[in-house]
């Protein structure tokens, strides 16, 4: 009797959790199915999830973009900016994390505090002068302002990698020195390969952030052929007086595809990364 009661509560628990999960992802499902509907269905029939008639042509309409520029340009732009920023951020953050976590140099504490304090600095404070500086250098409407800051590490990832490096036994370094490694080759041969899970996590999270970034492109890019996908989708929604919602959702859905693919394949790294940065020790 007790056992069957336990099974009932357990099933109930799972059903509730699944139902709640459905509610959570319903907006996403609604967008995906919406990308196959026409305006009338989207605007007047929002209670219905599945389209009456599937309209895959929304994707080709949407792909045409606006002002003679197609979404192949916008997605290529996004990939370019995201790939360089992500790579630069990952490598520079690893170098910095090694210095701050493993090398006992003068001023280490000071630079560590500086690094942590940038975590809490609202970007609005530096956004305006940065814009003015880039404008004076004639770099507005190029990708330099969107990419260059990432060559100098990002506090969030430096901190995460430091946690990771702190977990590696010091004896590894000592053994390497006996084997004739310098402090430099310790980094390239030992630390860098060993923190690869943290590197992968950094790549994933930085990819997401940069791919989604809207404020940066909004400020710096005004020529449509330079637009990234996130900016282009917003402009697509505004471009004509009557928005084609189906096509807009089609492009929105496509813009989330890379995000979902990475999520599907690298889920474990993502979860670990988020948990380690949140921990105090």
């Amino acid at each position: 009797m007790a056992k069957s009661k336990k099974i009932v509560t357990k099933t109930l628990f799972h059903v509730l959790i699944i139902l709640f999960g459905l509610v959570m992802i319903y907006p996403v499902l609604w967008m995906i199915f919406g990308s196959f509907k026409n305006n009338r269905e989207i605007l007047n029939n929002s209670m219905q999830l599945l389209p009456n008639i599937w309209r895959p042509e929304n994707y080709s309409t949407g792909w045409k973009g606006f002002g003679e520029i197609t979404f192949s340009t916008f997605f290529a732009n996004s990939f370019f900016v995201t790939a360089i920023a992500t790579l630069a951020c990952t490598i520079s953050s690893a170098l910095i994390a090694y210095a701050l976590a493993r090398v006992k140099f003068k001023g280490r504490k000071f630079w560590f505090v500086c690094m942590i304090s940038t975590l809490m600095l609202p970007s609005q404070v530096v956004m305006i002068p940065q814009y003015i500086i880039f404008q004076k250098l004639n770099l507005v409407n190029t990708y330099v302002p969107l990419i260059l800051p990432f060559f100098f590490g990002q506090a969030f990832f430096i901190y995460m990698m430091m946690q990771f490096i702190a977990g590696l036994p010091k004896e590894l370094d000592e053994a390497a020195i006996i084997d004739g490694c310098s402090k430099y080759t310790i980094f390239t041969r030992i630390i860098f390969p060993l923190i690869s899970p943290a590197l992968i996590t950094t790549v994933i999270i930085q990819f997401y952030w940069k791919w989604d970034d809207f404020l940066g492109p909004l400020i710096y890019l005004s020529r449509p052929e330079k637009y990234t996908a996130s900016l282009a989708i917003k402009m697509f929604a505004d471009a004509s007086s009557t928005t084609d919602y189906g096509a807009m959702f089609a492009m929105s859905t496509l813009s989330l595809v890379p995000v979902f693919l990475i999520f599907l394949f690298f889920n474990r790294y993502l979860m670990e990364g988020i948990s380690t940065t949140g921990m105090k020790d």
Partner: peptide, 8 residues
């Protein structure tokens, strides 16, 4: 954080 979700 994406534009897509805000539009939805």
């Amino acid at each position: 954080g994406s534009v897509a979700v805000s539009l939805v």
